[in-house]
């Protein structure tokens, strides 16, 4: 409550939608580049370059996008922490986000930089895509939970 009432973010009706737009650009950059890499693992897209090369070249863009998301996200959270904290979709999203980030910088990173058997690579790509799709769905459903869908 304390954060909420004194939070300058709640001072203007335009700040929250602006943060949402920044958040969308952030995930287009981060999840977009991760997806490009996953599609490469699945044999689609930038095939002239090796997976490792592509992974190295995309890494700074992924990180920049993640930074944008992880700055705009908590700012949005701070506008109404009680609501988010109790929102089942938000809770699921946070678990998936943690899993997705850890997966991205451990197994996914290892497979893209060092290589793996084709089947393993494809499995890793699918898991990565599924985790990030889950994160997006979780984020989007925050606004729909409690309305028509029970908490």
């Amino acid at each position: 409550m304390l954060i909420q009432s004194s939070n300058p973010l709640n001072g203007s009706a335009l700040i929250f939608p602006a943060l949402e737009c920044i958040h969308i650009v952030g995930f287009a950059l981060s999840i977009g580049t991760i997806a490009i890499l996953d599609f490469r693992l699945l044999g689609l897209g930038l095939k002239r370059q090796s997976v490792a090369e592509l992974a190295k070249d995309l890494a700074p863009w992924t990180l920049a996008g993640l930074a944008i998301m992880l700055l705009s996200g908590p700012a949005m959270f701070s506008s109404d922490p009680d609501m988010y904290y109790l929102n089942i979709s938000f809770q699921i999203k946070m678990v998936l986000l943690l899993l997705a980030i850890v997966f991205n910088y451990t197994i996914h990173r290892r497979v893209t930089l060092k290589g793996a058997l084709p089947q393993q690579s494809k499995l890793v790509a699918c898991v990565s895509l599924a985790l990030w799709m889950g994160v997006m769905a979780g984020g989007l459903f925050i606004g729909f939970v409690g309305d028509a869908i029970p908490r």
Partner: peptide
């Protein structure tokens, strides 16, 4: 339907992530 609309919106955003990410790369 309570679920279909948000699901379509989610897939719309996935398209944005994939498409937007590629647009950004080509533009930079």
């Amino acid at each position: 339907s309570a679920y279909v609309y948000p699901i379509i919106l989610t897939i719309h955003l996935m398209g944005i992530a994939l498409f937007g990410g590629m647009i950004l790369l080509v533009d930079v």
